[in-house]
Structure formats: structure tokens, C-alpha cells
Design a protein around this nucleic acid. Structure first.
Ligand SMILES: [Mn+2]
Ligand SMILES: [Mn+2]
Ligand SMILES: [Zn+2]
Ligand SMILES: [Zn+2]
Lengths: 145, 145
DNA sequence: TTCTTATATAATAATGGTTATAAACAGTAT
DNA sequence: ATACTGTTTATAACCATTATTATATAAGAA
């Protein structure tokens, strides 16, 4: 089965000045097929068989294009690499401190928090970020040995 | 009035192998006096009059020492500089997208979120992170002009 | 189809926050 | 005094990301 969301993403890019190149298509396809949340370098390495001459800058450039078009979200974590998420619907993440795994986590939006921040701090609230940290089941098993 | 929390922090360092140096004391004092959430470089610049020869590595080294001792918390934001918070009590932050200002924000801990993450994802949950983003009152005024 | 040109790619250099290294230094214990 | 341990300073290295620029190409026009 073809990926519907990928088709929609390609369609939405057509309506702008953005041209479709084989590299761009492959990066977008990988992102939408990918269940995990890959880094730029992971995307680069995953495609090096198909595009042995692709520059890492091309990956970064395209990730920015996709981000600006609202097709992917960037997840940032301190000094380590950003991760990219083609799922732009509202969801949170649970992150393993040991292996770095990122698991999607659905939870009703924290509207109340945003409202309170608006009232207490006087901010014009746009967004919020929430993540839960801990040890994933796999790493729990490994640690038990 | 002397800063009680600073005294307690100094006391807790004494009980370890950590030695007290003038630089270390000044960095810790600055962090506890500072109402904002300074970057390493801001601390470095704030102390360059008192310690014209201090290395920026000394600031980073000490921030790590304090972090390991549980005296300060590091707030990370993607590719930009980390910020450091001497307030280790439970609180959240509201952050201005325009000027970068970080405002403390008290809210009952999101225990429910942690519990759900544990049940749904099977994680051994350790903690969580939550931030609200928007435009601060000052920047709202500036934008209104 | 061929032409045109704005956009994309690839190769490489630059950036900037942070960390590593190593020599000099400063307390403390023996 | 000497040895020991931890600290500072200066500097180099690291590494993810971005900037630069010459070359290539996608896509609309002719
Ligand atoms: Mn996700
Ligand atoms: Mn704070
Ligand atoms: Zn894990
Ligand atoms: Zn602001």
C-alpha cells in the first residue's frame, strides 16, 4: 500500500516554488516510512546506497524545506542531534535515557497549562512542549541482567 | 541579607572532595543571585572584571560540578546555549520566542502524565519536561507599535 | 523539443557551543 | 620538603549545523 500521507505531502509541495528532485523525494519518503524519529545523519546513511554522492548538506537543506512547509517537526535535545518527526499531529514523546529511543505518546492536550501560563505570566501563548523521560522496557531487561 | 540557599549549597559541597576556589565561589554566587537563567557565556562575561584571567572552561567545569551535586539544573534548547537554573525546586518555564526570556511558572506536577506514560509505554519513568512558548508582555508591546 | 533560468546539489569551509588535553598551580597530608 | 589530589588556564579538538560557491538540473516558456 502506498503511503497516503506521503502523497499528500508531495502534493502540498507542488503548490509552491519547491521542485521535486530524486534526493528530495527519497528523503521525504524515508521520513514518512520511518517509524522512528531519525536524525539527519541517520537519513543520510540510510540513503547512501541509493545516492552515494548526496551531500549531508542536502539532507539538512531539505529537512528545513519540509519543516518550513509544515510537513515535519524537529525535535531538539540539548547538544545532541535533532530528530525529525513526519507525524505532525498532536502527540507527545516518552524518551529512554539509556538508549535514546523515542516513543509516541498520546495524551489530551494540556490546554489548562497554556491558559494558566497566559494568565499568570501575561504571555501570548503559542505552543508548549512536554516529554517524559525514563527507561524503556528493553533497557529495563538489559539492566536486570 | 545573605543568601541562605547559597550558604546551604556551599555547605553541601564541603562534604565532598570538591574544593572551594575563588572562581568556583563567584560562579556559584552569581548563579544564586541571578534572577534570570544565565548561559555559561553570560556567567563568564559577568565575572570577567573580577577574574580577568578566568578561562571559559572553568565556567563549564564548575557548572558540571554543580549539576552533579544537584545544586543547579541545566536547561537545554536545541543548538543554542544551555541555560542554568539555581532553583532546583519543581517548577516549569514560560519562554518568549521573540526575546528568549525565561519566566518561572509554578504548576502542580503532571503526575498523571507520568503514570500514563508508565502504563502505556511500559517505561520506568524518572521525570518529565514541560515548557510553554509564546510572546512575553514586553515583546507584545513592541510588536504593537 | 529545445531554451531559459531559478532552484537544487555537492564539495568544502566556516561557525559556535562545548569538551578534552596538558602544563602550571594550590591546597593537604605524610 | 615531598607527594598527592584536585583546579585553573590556555589551547586544541570535536561535532552538529550552516554558509559559500561552482556545477547541475527541474520545470515552465518558446
Ligand atoms: Mn513522534
Ligand atoms: Mn527557573
Ligand atoms: Zn532504552
Ligand atoms: Zn519577549
Amino acid at each position: 500500500m502506498e503511503n497516503t500521507e506521503l502523497r499528500e505531502a508531495l502534493q502540498s509541495l507542488k503548490s509552491t516554488k519547491v521542485r521535486m528532485t530524486p534526493q528530495r523525494h527519497a528523503i521525504l519518503e524515508f521520513l514518512f516510512d520511518c517509524e522512528q524519529h531519525p536524525t539527519a545523519d541517520e537519513i543520510y546513511k540510510a540513503l547512501e546506497d541509493k545516492f552515494p554522492n548526496m551531500s549531508v548538506a542536502t539532507v539538512y537543506n531539505n529537512l528545513r524545506v519540509f519543516k518550513d512547509a509544515g510537513l515535519v517537526r524537529e525535535l531538539t535535545y540539548g547538544d545532541s542531534s535533532s530528530r525529525f518527526d513526519s507525524n505532525t499531529s498532536d502527540h507527545y514523546h516518552v524518551i529512554c535515557d539509556d538508549c535514546g529511543k523515542i516513543v509516541d505518546f498520546h495524551y489530551p492536550g494540556l490546554d489548562e497549562v497554556e491558559t494558566l501560563a497566559k494568565h499568570i505570566a501575561g504571555f501570548n501563548v503559542r505552543d508548549h512542549r512536554m516529554e517524559v523521560y525514563g527507561t524503556c522496557p528493553d533497557c529495563q531487561k538489559k539492566l536486570a541482567n
